[in-house]
Simulated scan of single mutants.
Amino acid sequence: MGQRAAARNGRSRRRSRRNTGRRRPTGPILLLGVCLALMSVGAGAALAHWRGGPPPAEAADGTDVAPLMSQDPAPEPSASPSPSPSAGSSPKPKPKPSPSPSAKSEPPSVPASGPGTFTVAQSSGTAAGTGTLRRYKVEVEDGIDVSAQQAAAEIQQILAHPRGWAANGRGRFQLVSSNADFVIRIATPATADKLCLAVGLNTRGELNCETTEGVVVNLRRWLLGSPTFAGTPAEYRHLIINHEVGHEIGIRQHMGCPGPGEPAPVMMQQIKGLKGCVSNAWPYDDDGTYLSGPPV
Rank of each mutant, 00 (worst) to 15 (best):
G53F: 01
R51L: 00
V110T: 01
S84I: 02
D72W: 12
K92Q: 10
P97R: 06
A66K: 10
V34M: 10
A60K: 08
E58N: 10
P56E: 13
P107L: 02
V146E: 14
G129I: 08
P99M: 04
K94T: 15
E76D: 15
W50H: 07
A46H: 07
K96F: 06
V41Q: 01
P115S: 15
K96Q: 09
A103D: 15
P95T: 13
L31M: 14
G33M: 09
K96Y: 06
T130K: 14
A46S: 02
A59E: 07
L36H: 00
L68Y: 03
C35M: 12
I144A: 12
L30H: 08
M39Y: 00
A152E: 10
E141P: 04
L68A: 05
P67L: 09
F118H: 04
G53T: 07
L31E: 11
G62M: 04
K137D: 04
S78H: 05
P97T: 03
A79H: 11
V138C: 03
I144H: 12
L38E: 00
L68D: 03
P111W: 02
L32N: 11
V41H: 00
T119S: 14
K104G: 10
D145H: 10
G53N: 03
A151T: 11
G143E: 02
S86Y: 03
Q71I: 12
R51Q: 12
P108Y: 00
A103M: 06
T119F: 02
G129F: 12
E58M: 13
G33N: 05
G143H: 07
D61E: 10
S109H: 05
E141G: 11
A37P: 01
A43Y: 06
L30W: 03
V140P: 09
S80Y: 01
A66W: 08
P91Y: 00
R134C: 02
A60G: 02
T130I: 11
P73E: 09
W50T: 12
T132I: 10
A57Y: 07
P111D: 04
G131N: 08
A79W: 07
P99R: 08
E139S: 15
P85K: 02
E58A: 10
I144W: 15
Y136A: 05
D64G: 09
E141I: 11
R134W: 11
P115M: 02
A59Q: 12
G42T: 07
S113W: 01
P85M: 00
T63N: 07
E58D: 04
P81T: 01
P75R: 11
A128N: 06
R51C: 01
D142M: 00
G62T: 05
D145C: 00
I144T: 15
A74N: 08
S90P: 04
L47M: 09
G42K: 01
G53C: 05
Q150Y: 03
A148K: 08
A59C: 14
G129W: 10
S123Q: 14
G143L: 06
Q149R: 07
L30S: 14
L47Y: 01
G116K: 12
G88C: 00
P75W: 08
L36E: 02
V110H: 01
E58C: 06
D64P: 11
E141W: 04
A74M: 10
K137P: 01
P81I: 00
S102L: 04
P67T: 10
K92V: 14
P77Q: 05
P85Y: 02
S40Y: 03
E139G: 08
D142K: 08
V41N: 02
C35N: 00
R134K: 12
A66D: 14
